[in-house]
Design a protein around this nucleic acid. Sequence first.
DNA 1: CGGTTTTGACCCGCGC
DNA 2: GCGCGGGTCAAAACCG
Length: 599
Amino acid sequence: MEAAAAPAFGRPRPVVKPEKPAGDSDDDRNSPSNQSLLIKKENHGKEEHESEDKTSNSSDQKDLSCTKIQEEQLESARTEMGEVREENQRLKMSLGQIMKDYEALKMQFLGIVGREAKKLPEHDKEQRQRPHDDQTEETDLVSLTLGRYPMAEKKKAAEEKNINGGDKEEAVKQALSLGLNCKFEQESTPATVKEAHSPNRSLTISADHETKEDAGETNWPPSKGLKTMRSADDDALPPNPPKRARVCVRARCETTTMNDGCQWRKYGQKIAKGNPCPRAYYRCTGSPTCPVRKQVQRCADDMSILITTYEGNHNHPLPASATAMASTTSAAASMLLSGSSTSSAPNTTAAASSSSSSSNHALSFYSNSKQNFYLPNNSSIISSTSPTHPTITLDLTSNPSSTSNPSTHFGKFPSSFPNSRYPFTSQLDFGSSRNNVLSWNNGVLSYNRNSHPATTPTNNIYQNYIQHQRNTAMSLPHQQPPLPDTIAAATKAITADPSFQSALAAALTSIIGSGGAGTGTVKSSARSEQPLFQLTSTATTTTNKGNGCGTSFLSNITTATPSNSPPTGNMAFVPASSLPFSNPKSASASPGDHIDLTN
DNA sequence: CGGTTTTGACCCGCGC
DNA sequence: GCGCGGGTCAAAACCG
């Protein structure tokens, strides 16, 4: 392995002449110097033989000249030998250097693994101890819950977890080797990650998938819809297209679909087994060739929960309001595909590495080289992997009363989730000790902290993040700094760390919205006629005349945060004009919505 | 009239 | 090989 790994370091190898093995002195018999010596001997014998037939004068002269020639040849042979030895030395040194590099990387990797292991919550450890077939990559499962997570249910959910089990090292390896440059604007950065087929994901493997997707070639289930793909989306499908990740978003929503800012056309509906609610199939109509599709289905156990599964990346410019969700889903997919899903604990640092910080990944889960990213409290991601589709689930449901909807939690998730056939789920609870609630209700994201019901409810998540950013050295008691400072700090943190979580972004958005507007509604500075996003909190109640469950809560905090991020940047800040609430035309985007303010 | 939704039929993979 | 189930197609209906 070491020998194989050494070239991967990219170190320029010394030029080695293949016909001249750089061996030690043992191999010198084949060296040119020896050859020349042999030639010399042969010549000497030949000359001696010839000298018998010739006169002594001429033979003496010839002997003289021959000895000179021999000496010259000897000299050149010696220099040649010296060169060969030098080359051997160089080769040995470079080999040693490669070995050193390898060892260093190995130590780094082990260190990361060790750190990761320390940060695993206890239930993760329990989970790890479970004999699980999660050893296979096919069953990767992570969970990120953006809602409060009661401890009891956390334990349940922990049982579902498996990614942090025996495969942790593998996952970290994947995280180290993968970075998914999910893109939503197809042009800028050539994405370089594809889904891995095998547990041993590598950069090589990850090179294709995104590229294909970015090129607008969606690798929809190769098995299915070949006809469809050929006709509409793709010109050519690879013989063995890689699996593509799915991102499942669970959110409380009374409407038929979540309003994620995209235009969708329904192309099918099916009654899925085990769920009385029909599953609807939508296609993105933003571009005729846009490969993105989504499935919408209500949770069988809790009809108020809408499960939206996204698949594919948009190959066209998205409405700004859509970039948020697209970014979120893509980031989640990135996380899944990169194996960074091993992060689990509150303040967990994911050992994910970003392959490119220049991606358009609006809400990257990745951290640049040595940066850590922190998952907000109560955020959870469930990722599961079916034989055909790795799936990551962003649970945006909240459960203010932990017992009201037990089924919405991941402990029961597999039974209610349409992808329940996925053999494993793992839930990573990022700490719910503070009883934070981040909920997404019918187009509004609300974040409640139960411990301070009367205060501004939306500060905790990024406070935690900021606290982590400050390395907890200050060990400040949990408090809520003045909002402007907080926003500035959050902005700074976000801009400093592009890997900030989408969920955190959502929370931040709501924070800023509540803080900036005070009424829970932030209006666009450019177009004040439409709310940028609306927030519910324990203190404020807003009505959403818009459509359905908006995902654009992630969008448009530009007015509050002086972010320099482009619309497709790490945070999707969009103008109000493009918010889905203002788009009542598409029924799929926002059919007959009404506001659920129960949270 | 163009776009969307509905819905039965069809295709295909997978498990038995 | 067969049945099941998920996913998609495509024509008709619907809607603004």
